[in-house]
């Protein structure tokens, strides 16, 4: 399975279909991002033969743009609506990747999304993992999608 292609296609399809926005993928890297500033992060755990996680990390200003588009109303502060919208975004991307993995014979169960936000925080939920971290740009900002599996 081409993980880069799976993440890229899933994210682009969701932005086109649900947000009427174009999300352009950038260069993927293997390293996980850990520290975030003024951001919102949504994490979906994946449990099965392997453990993994799908995370989306979005600067607050971009999260407001995305949530405003989801809800078709202007959202000006990071509140429960923003956390819910970014959590649902991560849920949809994780579901698409899960479908691709299922076709490869790997069954996973998805957790309900967890969302964290704040002025400065770190996320370190898989200590020994491998995967992909892929940046995306949209009109109004950038964000990062990560999919990593425990080694």
């Amino acid at each position: 399975m081409d993980l880069n292609k799976s993440i890229s296609q899933a994210t682009q399809e969701i932005f086109q279909t649900m947000l009427m926005m174009e999300a352009s993928p950038g260069q993927a890297v293997a390293e996980r991002a850990k520290g975030f500033v003024d951001s919102v992060s949504a994490i979906v755990g994946m449990a099965g033969a392997n453990k993994g996680m799908l995370a989306i990390h979005i600067p607050e200003a971009t999260a407001l743009v995305i949530t405003s588009s989801f809800l078709m109303m202007e959202v000006t502060e990071v509140d429960d609506d923003v956390k819910d919208a970014i959590g649902e975004l991560a849920n949809m991307v994780a579901g698409s990747i899960k479908a691709d993995l299922t076709e490869q014979g790997q069954e996973f169960k998805l957790s309900i999304p967890s969302v964290v936000c704040g002025a400065e925080y770190e996320i370190d939920c898989l200590t020994d993992s491998q995967g992909v971290s892929m940046p995306f740009s949209i009109e109004g900002g950038e964000f990062l999608v990560e999919f990593h599996l425990q080694k």
Partner: peptide, 24 residues
Amino acid sequence: TTEAGSEILDEAKSLGAAGSIKKP
């Protein structure tokens, strides 16, 4: 649901679900 094409949808159909729509 995001769970398109997985065993969980088969279970839903066996419990009477009339159809399914994949998110997005």
